[in-house]
């Protein structure tokens, strides 16, 4: 096995572990199928290590427009499984990440590709605009 192959194996293993850990949702919060919960300790690793585009939903528990977009994200996660990763980040608990991207209002969606932010969609816009933005990066 070459050095590159070894590194790739380690990277994939790390990503698998990270995903597994992040699917363990905190108690009392509705579990969103196919959607990973990010926080300030795993955000950078998750974005950097993903081999597919990542759609991140910046939200808060008390934000009505955010809650409206929850099912849309789950729908996309189901329909684009394997082609993209889907994640949520609570801005109340991780405000430093939201500040980093200059996010002022929520819901706010950001697509990361190759570890960097490539596109954003603001507001409770339904499935259409989110999917259109995502399709530019999933190679369909």
């Amino acid at each position: 096995m070459t050095r590159d192959e070894k590194l790739e194996r380690i990277r994939l293993k790390k990503l698998r572990e990270l995903k597994k850990r992040m699917h363990e949702e905190p108690k009392g919060r509705p579990k969103a199928r196919g959607v990973v919960t990010l926080n300030s300790s795993n955000f950078d690793d998750f974005i950097k290590n993903s081999t597919v585009p990542v759609l991140v939903d910046f939200w808060a528990e008390w934000c009505m427009p955010c809650l409206m977009m929850g099912p849309v994200l789950e729908e996309l996660a189901r329909d684009y499984a394997g082609k993209a990763l889907f994640a949520r980040l609570n801005v109340d608990e991780n405000s430093e990440i939201a500040r980093r991207y200059n996010i002022m209002s929520i819901p706010f969606f950001m697509i990361f590709d190759g570890g960097r932010s490539v596109e954003s969609v603001r507001g409770a816009v339904g499935r259409g605009p989110l999917e259109r933005a995502l399709r530019k990066y999933v190679g369909i």
């Binding site: 910046f58 808060a60 528990e61 109340d92 209002s105 929520i106």
Partner: peptide, 21 residues
């Protein structure tokens, strides 16, 4: 949400906005 934010930040920030610092 506002009451919780008030507890955390001492201000009743809108629950649909990010508190920037």
């Amino acid at each position: 949400g506002m009451l919780l934010r008030e507890k955390k930040y001492r201000r009743r920030y809108c629950p649909c906005r990010v508190v920037s610092g």
